[in-house]
Write a protein that binds this DNA or RNA. Structure first.
Lengths: 343, 343
DNA sequence: AACCTGAACTGAAGCGCTTTAGTTCCTCAT
DNA sequence: ATGAGGAACTAAAGCGCTTCAGTTCAGGTT
């Protein structure tokens, strides 16, 4: 005998019907704002339902409507990387504030790689647990997209829109990177390096291309562009290498805050003054950037709003709309202490 | 006409029944390992189901079993605080690895306070969206517990067990704090301060009590014990105050890694050498502790395992067991660069 | 008075599964 | 030959809701 009896008598729509002296159909009409009942009975039924504290059984409604009223978010990263990235939690918080408005729940799954991610997609869809999905961390050749398309799964991409593909919510990474380069060049820097994130991620490629273009526009050649895995260790190693070169950069842009922090740390160890001898720009903003000394100049954006817009797009898609892609605000450069005129 | 037709013909148990030439009841028996079918037909049915790629419709099964096969995690914190704390993502990742084994999904909700948290509990339970809950960030007088108890909601507490209450997964915060104090005293420190977290949180109180007890055991009186809200700003402010005192501490323990980082930063600004003049211990370990200079001595534990154990306890509870509370491994002190013999 | 209309409501099917109460049929003891 | 017993299966109810096809009835037309 379980400590919890699952079969407790639950309040159902027919209890309300009995109490109101009408059929369950009438109750359903009343509760869902459909025609078929007079305004007076509707009010009576609503009052009774509220008084009795009735709430629809999600499984029953889902079964009947062929809809789960739930969306899924699958994050394909190792738990270690996730931990330090404030991005996800903020994004999730934003999504939920929006989803709450339509009584849509959020199913979450954290898996280490794309293969598992596809398994999770299959499971959820086959079991009808979700009505649609949010896809993050897009790769340029993303194995998940064909799966989603072939199965006809409604999804919203967090990243650049695909031609003819599903709706995407994105922001102009290229413009942000360009702003950072312009800012550094404006400070007199000529020898600038870029420490990029995972090369498989599409936005890494976009940013790298934008970096090259922006440098070229100023008639400059990058000192280096190095791909990494976003970790602190990688940021430290690359910074060490860059500073050990014959003509080291006077400025480095990092693709996230964690690596930028590592860069500051390594520079200090090597006795390279930040920002006197080396300027540093972080590609993501978070409390972390204000936690280090010197505080980090960073590309900042409203991640929570990003989550809100993504959720809104998915909800609209599920409601039968055909939302276009949504361009979120471009990250702006927030100048702090880690940048200064070139030596 | 929606871009996605929800009414696409889905594979159901009766398709399999038709194909196997048996009744749907027989199929259900076969798929769920129940008696009522011969071994040969069971195998035949399983083969057909696998071949056709059948998966049970979660809503249908849930409706029939009066069970959602989903558990809920409600996090009651502001998105800002959440972001920097690597704890949650790791914990979630751990939970999921365990939940995946029993095909249980995780519903997540991030709300700013306990009031909203209770609303979310009510909603989920009334709608039968979850079978049980994980309760984190326990307060000593936690308004959620009476709600859970009165509604008979299966729940596992992440924190100290309540006498006669629901099962809890916890670790010995007192022992960990004691180890930190012993360590510092062993290094010759006599003037030790504690920068605590949110005073409403139960484990803050447990740690503070343990801190006092450990100090007393060494015949010492704390320089100060200050409550905070875990933020970087609070950590910085308190450190500044402590170091400005007539007889400043030679060692400070902080209740999380973020504040400890702030402490290091402030000390440097004030020209106080870490660890030469001031030793610092962080109450939580994460990559952050290895990202600052000097790297932080910290109380470290396996957060992912913590999540695994919590999920396992809840699953056992839902399966009708009556799991006792589970004591997770005690955090161990990882000595790094931020601690040294007292000046 | 006969007819039509539309609003207000009921009855019942159906969503996909589990589970209980039968039914059929084979085997074995008598 | 008869029946008891059990294994292997089927039929159908039920989970709680939505929805569609009817039914009833007041009111208006002609």
């Amino acid at each position: 005998m379980s400590a919890y009896d699952r079969r407790v008598k639950r309040l159902t729509i027919s209890d309300i019907a009995k109490r109101a002296g009408v059929s369950i159909g009438a109750v359903s009409f009343a509760l869902n704002g459909r025609p078929g009942v007079s305004e007076s009975t509707r009010q009576r039924i609503l009052a009774i339902a509220a008084e009795m504290g009735w709430r629809p059984n999600a499984a029953a409604r889902g079964l009947s409507e062929s809809r789960a009223n739930t969306v899924g978010l699958i994050i394909a990263r190792s738990a270690d990387t996730l931990g330090v990235e404030p991005f996800f939690m903020k994004f999730i918080a934003g999504m939920e504030s929006e989803l709450a408005l339509t009584r849509t729940a959020l199913l979450l799954q954290v898996v280490p790689d794309h293969l598992r991610s596809i398994e999770a997609i299959n499971d959820w869809w086959a079991e009808r647990r979700v009505d649609g999905l949010i896809v993050m961390d897009l790769w340029s050749q993303d194995a998940r997209l064909p799966v989603l398309e072939s199965m006809g799964i409604p999804a919203v991409l967090v990243g650049r829109p695909r031609p003819g593909g599903m709706p995407a919510v994105w922001n102009d990474d290229a413009a942000a990177v360009t702003e950072a380069v312009d800012f550094l060049v404006g400070l007199g820097h000529r020898r600038i390096a870029r420490v990029a994130g995972l090369p498989a991620l599409e936005h890494t490629q976009v940013r790298t291309a934008a970096f090259h273009a922006a440098m070229a526009r100023h008639g400059l050649a990058p000192v280096a562009v190095v791909d990494t895995d976003y970790t602190w260790a990688a940021g430290a190693r690359v910074t060490r290498d860059l500073l050990a070169a014959a003509t080291p950069p006077t400025a480095i842009t990092f693709d996230n805050d964690v690596m930028a922090t590592a860069g500051v740390s390594v520079a200090r160890q090597l006795g390279v003054g930040v920002p006197q001898e080396l300027s540093i720009v972080a590609g993501d903003d978070s409390q972390l950037c204000e936690m280090v000394f010197p505080t980090l100049t960073a590309l900042s954006r409203d991640v929570q709003a990003y989550g809100v817009h993504t959720a809104r797009t998915l909800v609209s898609l599920l409601d039968g709309g055909s939302p276009g892609s949504f361009q979120d605000a471009t990250a702006r450069l927030v100048a702090r202490e880690s940048t200064a005129p070139a030596p």
